[in-house]
Design a protein around this nucleic acid. Structure first.
Lengths: 137, 137
DNA sequence: TTCTTGGTGCAACATTGTTGCATTTGATAC
DNA sequence: GTATCAAATGCAACAATGTTGCACCAAGAA
């Protein structure tokens, strides 16, 4: 689905900033941070606009917000079923683990789930191959 | 275990700031943010000291850092087996779900787990009882 | 008690995000 | 197409959370 279709599918106005953000995320293919997305967007938008657009689309369920470690916040299109994410402590890359699905979890009485995140931290395959153990602090 | 014992158990110097942070966390009993912990600590310490002390103890495995939504970062003593956390979108309270244990996860070849987080967001029992649906945005 | 490593305070800065207000733009009706 | 209006955008200022460099002090060992 293209950007305009995604927006109308979620009953959102097709504004230029939103379309640009969605296209950037589609090109990046992996969950990306604000500066990464902004760089990928051709036109410059104010950071306020970025955050307000992202917030609207997160609330609409179009975009997923993945918080890893504070100062490392990533956004991804919600175009796949929910899955866990792997964060490499060494190269900071965030990898989608599409085979690992969160839950369902049996919560205590009265708790209502809206969303859940599974973040696994460690060393990715690339870093564990190329790095001697001692260099990893 | 008291603060001094916890520190020597993790081969860390028993500095006054660290002891104070650990005591505050023990009294709070629930994962708490920087301002919450600082308030609970009787003496005033510089925020730099707080962050450096926390970082040291997180790296040593004494304290666990739980990142929920950016701008909402909590710290907890690692005195229980790993478990999921529930974050209430309405009252911002973080609840330990000690019956829900993360993983073990089958990762693709080459990935090494160091730690994993399961964050479930939604409405806690208290908020879902007391609030009419419309007031929750 | 002295010595040395590393913990602490201060000042300045970085990143990520928010709020208020004026202006522009997208969607709808005409 | 044009008018209309709610909603999106830009700008400026601010807020929360965390980091870095440097001087000073304190904990633990000899």
């Amino acid at each position: 689905m293209n950007a305009a279709e995604l927006l109308s599918h979620h009953h959102l106005k097709k504004s230029s900033a939103r379309i640009s953000i969605i296209r950037a995320l589609q090109e990046l293919e992996t969950p990306a941070s604000e500066p990464e997305i902004s760089n990928k967007m051709g036109i410059h938008y104010d950071r306020t606009t970025f955050y307000r657009s992202i917030q609207t689309m997160v609330e609409a369920g179009l975009i997923r917000k993945i918080v890893v470690d504070k100062l490392v916040v990533r956004y991804a299109l919600r175009d796949k079923p929910d899955h866990a994410h792997f964060y490499c402590d060494n190269c900071q890359q965030l990898t989608c683990l599409e085979d690992i699905h969160p839950g369902p979890y049996r919560l205590p009485a009265g708790f209502q789930t809206r969303e859940s995140d599974v973040i696994i931290r460690g060393l990715c395959n690339s870093c564990s191959n190329h790095l001697p153990i001692e260099t990893i602090h």
